[in-house]
Design a protein around this nucleic acid. Structure first.
Length: 495
RNA sequence: GGGCCGCUAGCUCAAUUUGGCAGAGCAGCUGACUCUUAAUCAGCGGGUUAGAGGUUCGAGUCCUCUGCGGCUCACCA
């Protein structure tokens, strides 16, 4: 079983062998480095005119321009790029020759030298010597075009990152956004917590789960589809403000805005209702945008979007009425609503519950046009089994969803804290499940028990971090903001 | 899961329309060159055209199946 090597890989293996023959370690445990590329340039600029500035920089060789007895090259490190200049009269014949014959683009090197400015004004390290920090055995992607193949970019994200600087920036923005979320919530007295990912009963959202198994306990477990039911238990326990940022797993289709595992923020605040949460949500998103990209005015796929609060608020009923002419409150059951929808020539799934019909109208006729940030308010009860009813209503709950660029980014409600009502809601969900709705909630007795010890009036909130990052980085696909998005396994049967 | 589109050298792309020698740039190798920066100049090597099968005198190109990817619809956040 010999590896099939390309000609370029073979040349690099031969160079590796020659380096070892010459007693040079191609993978030394450490190399000297005094400055990053950026630090070196700043040090030169800060130094008095004509002063000698000595540095040792280290990084990956990205370009090599050889001109006989001297060579220019660029190395790249975590801070950026810096040019190095190698001359035979400084390195000596043998070292210079070794560099030319045994080093490749992609290799990591360490270079001590003095800084100078070239004729064209570029700050450059005039090398005293050069040492290998790590040998590279495969050629890098095209230095000019980068790596474009989407499949390779995602399967080998490291190549994408090293070849495409703009991709590196996306994940810096993402990290700043997450840090800003934590700062925002921490400053308001929220406690960051961690709750189980492996759950005996999944809940808190309408989705199909991934199933796994604990061997010793011989117990099936589910990867969580939300954090909700555990975070509310913590409100019962006496924490008044909690949040969690982590991964949810949903066994559903993959699309430009869906990945099987995705990152969610949920927070719960005692003595807040959904109106309080709405104000917090718009402030929080604006804060995160300012911290992560320096502005609340973003361009997403060519559309100018202003995240500055306050966001537009409109009742779901009014939004659907505006877009479709259907006033769902005039139709108290699924059949009459379905007939009204069909009568207007609109398309929805038949045999749906009333709530699902409304949700379907929302998804098809309202959501795509919600470009500027918008809160849709007051949802039908049968698609909101964990939300509190509006006072005086049996069919509507205190719930809102936030939309930006035609995409749902958050979901929140005044939390249902009536344990008996909650039990009834679970029972209704159980009937939906029996009727074939695989995403309906299961009865969760332990959660009901928690509620029956008393939970104060509470507002809860959930937001997709990936989608938020898509907005902040102007990316049209969720895979572009997830470092290692889910990919189908490659068939390697012949190897 | 359905529909449509795609897969050619390490990378970026031609050649596919109309079946007729599989090409270029970068990268690589050899040589020249002591301020270059997509360095330049001369020469050279590199391909199971995603895989399997079929049609044909002849297939990267047409047909079938499979794999993977992209877009899209459905479901979902």
């Amino acid at each position: 079983m010999t590896e099939r090597l390309t000609d370029q890989e073979q040349y690099r293996r031969e160079k590796l062998a020659k380096l070892r023959e010459k007693g040079m370690d191609p993978y030394p445990p450490r190399v000297p480095r005094t400055h990053t590329a950026e630090e070196a340039k700043r040090a030169f600029e800060a130094a008095p005119e004509g002063a000698e500035v000595r540095v040792t920089v280290a990084g990956r060789l990205m370009t090599i321009r050889e001109m006989g007895k001297s060579t220019f090259a660029h190395i790249e490190d975590g801070s950026g790029r810096i040019q190095i200049y190698l001359r035979v009269d400084r390195l000596g014949e043998e070292a210079y020759d070794d560099f030319r014959k045994l080093y490749d683009i992609g290799d990591f090197v360490s270079v001590p030298g003095t800084l100078f400015r070239t004729r064209t004004g570029e700050i450059t390290v005039l090398a005293d010597s050069i040492a290998l920090a790590a040998k590279t055995l495969r050629p890098l992607p095209d230095k000019w075009h980068g790596l474009k193949d989407t499949e390779l970019r995602h399967r080998q994200r490291y190549l994408d990152l090293l070849a495409n600087p703009e991709v590196r920036e996306i994940f810096r923005v993402r990290a700043r956004a997450v840090a800003a979320l934590r700062r925002f919530l921490d400053e308001r007295g929220f406690l960051e917590v961690e709750t189980p990912i492996l759950q005996p009963i999944y809940g808190g959202a309408a989705a199909r789960p991934f199933i796994t198994h604990h061997n010793q306990l011989d117990q099936d477990l589910y990867l969580r589809i939300s954090f909700e039911l555990y975070l509310k238990r913590l409100i019962v326990g006496g924490y008044e403000r909690v949040y969690e940022i982590g991964r949810d797993f949903r066994n559903e289709g993959i699309s430009f805005k869906h990945n099987p595992e995705f990152t969610q923020l949920e927070f719960y605040q005692a003595y807040a209702d959904y109106n309080d949460v709405m104000r917090t949500a718009e402030e929080m998103v604006a804060f995160v945008a300012r911290e992560a990209i320096g502005t609340t005015k973003i361009t997403y796929q060519g559309q100018e979007i202003d995240l500055t609060p306050p966001w537009r608020r409109i009742r779901l009923r009014d939004a659907i009425l505006e877009a479709t002419g259907v006033d769902y409150e005039a139709y108290p059951d699924a059949e009459s609503l379905f007939n009204a929808i069909i009568a207007r020539g609109l398309e929805v799934e038949a045999k749906s519950s009333r709530g699902k019909l409304i949700d379907s109208l929302l998804g098809s006729y309202v959501e795509p046009d919600l470009i500027q940030p918008t809160f849709l308010i007051d949802y039908p009860i049968d698609v909101s089994p964990l939300a509190k009813k509006k006072p005086g209503s049996e069919t509507t709950v205190e719930r809102f969803e936030g939309f930006v660029a035609g995409m749902e980014i958050c979901n929140a409600f005044s939390e249902l804290n009536d344990p008996l009502d909650q039990r009834e809601r679970f029972l209704a969900q159980g009937r939906d499940f029996a009727a074939g709705d695989e995403e309906a909630h299961q009865m969760d007795e332990d959660f009901i028990t928690a509620l029956s010890y008393g939970m104060p009036p509470t507002g809860g909130f959930g937001m997709g971090i990936d989608r938020l990052t898509m907005l902040l980085t102007d990316q049209p696909n969720i895979r572009e903001v997830i470092l290692f998005p889910h990919m189908r396994s490659r068939d390697r049967g012949s190897e």
